[in-house]
Design a protein around this nucleic acid. Structure first.
Lengths: 132, 132
DNA sequence: TATTTATTTAGACAATGTCAAGACAAATAT
DNA sequence: ATATTTGTCTTGACATTGTCTAAATAAATA
C-alpha cells in the first residue's frame, strides 16, 4: 500500500499529522473499526487528536472513495478499507465482520424489480464463524 | 391481524395500555419505524408513555419473535412488522425502506463459504425507487 | 513580516439507547 | 377489607455516537 502522505496528496487533502495517523490506521486495518476505534488508535500516534478531526477525516476519506462505510451493526457505523465490491458476514457471537469476495455469491432476479433503480447491493449474512 | 390484546396475551405479556399502544402502531405499520417514531405515535394514544417503556416493549416483541429489527440505516435501528424472511431496498433519496419478497431473489454460492455457519442472510439494495 | 486560508481543538449540543430507583397498579393471600 | 408480594411504569441519570461552532493554531501566500 502507498504511504499515507501520498494517498492524501493524491486526493488533494493536505497531509497533517492528525490525518496521517487516521489514514495509517484505518486504511490498513484488517478489521472493520468504528470511529471510536480509529480515535483510540490515532491518539497513540498523535495524543492530542480530537474527535472532530477524526470524524472529519473519516468523512473526507469516504467522500473521496478511499474508504467504505457500512451500517451493518447496531450502535455505530463501521469503516472498511476494502473498497472493492464485496459482501459481508457478521459473527453474532463476537461482532466481528468478515468480507466475502464479490464473486463467491451470485444474486439472481434483480431484473424483476421493475420499481427500483438499484445503484448498489450486497448480501449480508449473520451467524458464527467456524473455528478450525 | 389479531388485536393487540390477544397478541400480547398469547406470548404471556400482560396487556397494559402502554404496551397496547406500542403494539397497535408497530405491528400494523406499513413503514419501518424507528423507536422514536413509535414513541411519538404511542403518545397519541397514551400521552404519558415513557421512552423506557417503548424501548422495553419493542425489545420484548423482538425477543418473542413478533417484530423484526434491522440495522440498515445510520443513526437508529428500524423495526419491521414483517417477520417473514425478505430482502430490503433502501431509497437513498428519501430514506424509505421497502420489503422485497424472499422469492424474488436467489442467492447462489453460500455453500462455498466453508468457514461460516450462516443462520440468516438477506440482500440489501440501495438506490432510487422509480416513480410511476 | 503581514495577511489570508486551512486545520485543529474543545466544548456544546442533539439523538439513540440503557439503567436504576422510586411510584404506581394489580393480583394474591391473610 | 387489608396487607403483601409481584409486576409495570416513569423519571431522570448516564454513556455513546455524531455534528457543529467558535476560538486557537498552523500553514501558505503575498
Amino acid at each position: 500500500m502507498k504511504d499515507a502522505i501520498s494517498i492524501l496528496r493524491h486526493c488533494g487533502i493536505q497531509p497533517t499529522p492528525q490525518r496521517i495517523a487516521v489514514v495509517e490506521y484505518v486504511l490498513k486495518s484488517k478489521t472493520h473499526p468504528s470511529a471510536d476505534h480509529v480515535l483510540s488508535y490515532a491518539r497513540k500516534k498523535c495524543p492530542t487528536v480530537s474527535r472532530a478531526t477524526v470524524y472529519n477525516t473519516l468523512n473526507l476519506l469516504v467522500e473521496k472513495g478511499l474508504l467504505g462505510m457500512q451500517t451493518i451493526k447496531e450502535g455505530a457505523v463501521v469503516f472498511d478499507p476494502n473498497i472493492e465490491k464485496h459482501h459481508h458476514f457478521v459473527d453474532t457471537d463476537t461482532g466481528d465482520v468478515y468480507d466475502i469476495p464479490w464473486d463467491q455469491l451470485e444474486v439472481k432476479g434483480k431484473e424483476k424489480l421493475k420499481d427500483f433503480e438499484i445503484t448498489e447491493f450486497q448480501v449480508i449474512m449473520r451467524g458464527r464463524r467456524k473455528k478450525n
